[in-house]
Simulated assay, not measured.
Amino acid sequence: MIKVMIVDDSAVVRAVISDILQREPDMQVIATAPDPVFAMSKMNQQWPDVLILDIEMPRMDGLTFLRQIMQQRPTPTVICSTLTTEGADITLQALRAGAVSIVAKPTAGLSDFLRSQDEDLVSVVRAAASANIKRLRSGTASTAAAAAAPPKLTADAILEAPRNTPRLSQTTDRVVAIGTSTGGTQALEYLLPRLPATVPGLVIVQHMPAQFTQSFARRLNDLSRIEVKEAVSGDRVVTGRALIAPGGRHMLLKRNGAQYVVDVVDGPPVSRHRPSVDVLFRSVAKAAGANALGVIMTGMGDDGARGMKEMRDAGAPTVAQDEASCIVFGMPKEAIKHGGAADIAALEDIPAMIVRYGNAN
């Protein structure tokens, strides 16, 4: 039984989320609280397996409370954050403090919005409950976005699968494609600052709501020696640059003469995500073939597993993050199961692998 506590100053949010979770046979809402001070008194009586936490609350803000919790007793925490630019910046601070996931909520129509994404709320809580507690600590960050549950489409909805096309010959131009979800903020904040300015161009899908990817890209750019930016159509994939797929849109790699560029497109969610790792990886398999390295890291679900297999079939080297260093081992596990991962490596070893790939003749 997954024991959940909901801390939010909105009575509507507390009631709706409680109702959604209580319908699940493996979940129990053990308490709700309108602010962190009241929550702590209840947590001292019974500690939850998962905490759902608002940011802006009376008496103590959620960010301060989260930092206290992560120092006292690291607990998988889902941030329930408002869809605003200011909210995005504060939420990213919460993710760096150790939160696992984001549930983005609007400023109006809360009840209908939350009920429309009940399946994803449940999935996010289950993923949080399975998080690797040893990887949750103050100063880390991770995220997965909750969105309305669409049909589980494949990458066919965006672009055709490779059709027994001959492998592309290797060139000096190389690409690194990375896919991640829950725990990915932590993983990327570890990975990108450790890459030199001479690293091959990177294309990255991190499951996040639209309002958060731009702030996240700015944060990574400030931390890193390479340039990091939220992608727009036509951006070139060049040495020393990482392009982050914008939340709410798919990103594809394309070959434009002698150059690689990205195309940012609309379309239905694929593997229940937009942007989708499967879409990015398939496009990389078709456009770059053996001239790309595929990396899949911590995250829930199976997005990217099939796309990584297509990359490997096209001649690309591929690597999956190992279980011990993942916040959630879902996506790498599925990539391994589908035969897409040629190598398995700890997060701490992946930067060096990318550098070696870039330096190989």
Rank of each mutant, 00 (worst) to 15 (best):
E56L: 12
P58T: 07
R59K: 15
M60W: 14
D61C: 11
G62D: 11
G62W: 07
L63R: 12
L63C: 08
T64N: 10
F65C: 08
F65R: 08
L66V: 13
L66N: 05
L66T: 08
M70K: 10
Q71S: 14
P74Q: 13
I79T: 05
I79S: 02
T82W: 03
L83I: 09
L83D: 05
T84L: 07
T84G: 07
T84A: 04
E86M: 12
E86L: 06
G87L: 12
D89E: 15
D89H: 15
I90Q: 01
I90W: 03
T91P: 08
L95W: 07
R96Q: 14
A99M: 02
S101P: 09
I102V: 03
V103S: 09
K105F: 01
P106S: 01
P106F: 09
P106G: 05
P106W: 07
G109D: 11
L110A: 11
D112I: 12
F113C: 14
L114N: 05
L114C: 05
L114V: 14
L121C: 12
V122G: 08
V122F: 00
S123L: 14
V124N: 08
V125Q: 05
R126Q: 14
A127L: 09
A127V: 14
N132R: 12
N132C: 13
I133A: 00
L136D: 05
R137Y: 07
S138G: 12
S138N: 08
